[in-house]
């Protein structure tokens, strides 16, 4: 408080000095004009021209020195007023302090909300039957998305994927429970992902294994070969029967 009063007094003094020096400089201008007129008239009227010229010279020298002095005073005052950046640094420090206090209060609020959620009586439980199993088709679509560059083509691929799912599975996906999950593909472990955001007590799903497209294609061909073998066996049994 005292420091601010001190600074304000100092500012007032410097402002007063600056105004005073500027006023003197303005007055000096009119004085010089008057002096020039007087010197001219005395030179014209005087019998001893040399004396008048010498007096004028002396006056000019003094006037120049005075002008330089006044200009220096004014410039010094302006420079002092401008380069006084203590107030700015003080304001900067104050703003930083306010920011830190606000961040602290925000952190406190977050901690409070977190503790409230932690010690709540009714904790939300996510039943596994309402959780959707991650299908491999989504992975496939993701790979397709990675490969494709056009947006329109990706939309078409997504539609195809949806259609495939409907073809392969007679029942909709949400009808299956976690315990009765459908075997979408052999040899692939299905993981569960929570549907709802927020707290879930269930363990995190393992990361899905990475597959190249070529290997999948090979698997598909194997599957088709296996199906053809089965069909040929059925035909043979029919013939034998």
């Amino acid at each position: 408080m005292q420091s601010s009063e001190f600074w304000s007094q100092k500012d007032l003094v410097s402002d007063f000095n600056f105004d005073k020096s500027l006023k003197e400089l303005r007055e000096l201008r009119s004085q010089l004009h008057h002096a020039a007129d007087y010197c001219e008239s005395t030179f014209l009227n005087a019998k001893e021209k040399k004396v008048a010229v010498e007096n004028t010279k002396e006056y000019i020298c003094r006037a120049v020195v005075t002008v330089v002095d006044h200009l220096g005073c004014v410039s010094e005052n302006i420079n002092g007023l401008i380069s006084k950046t203590n107030a700015f640094s003080e304001a900067d420090i104050r703003i930083n302090c306010l920011k830190q206090r606000f961040l602290l209060s925000q952190q406190f609020v977050h901690n409070l909300a977190l503790s409230r959620l932690r010690w709540r009586e009714i904790i939300p439980r996510h039943h596994p039957r309402y959780l959707s199993a991650p299908n491999t088709e989504t992975e496939k679509s993701d790979e397709d998305l990675r490969d494709s560059t056009n947006v329109a083509s990706t939309k078409i691929i997504d539609k195809k994927v949806v259609f495939k799912i409907e073809d392969d599975m007679p029942l909709p996906l949400f009808a299956y429970t976690y315990s009765q999950k459908p075997a979408l593909s052999k040899g692939e472990t299905n993981s569960v992902l929570p549907v709802r955001d927020g707290f879930s007590i269930l363990s995190k799903s393992p990361n899905p294994a990475f597959h190249f497209q070529e290997t999948k294609k090979k698997l598909r061909s194997r599957r088709s070969l296996h199906g053809s073998d089965i069909l040929s066996l059925i035909r043979r049994t029919k013939r034998t029967a």
Partner: peptide, 29 residues
């Protein structure tokens, strides 16, 4: 003097912006 005044103006602008940001944050809180 012009350059010094320009730098001062910039400093004042940044201070004003920071103050406005703080005001908004405090208001929302």
């Amino acid at each position: 003097t012009k350059s010094k005044l320009a730098s001062l103006n910039g400093k004042l602008d940044t201070l004003e912006r920071r103050l406005e940001l703080l005001e908004v944050q405090v208001g929302t809180a």
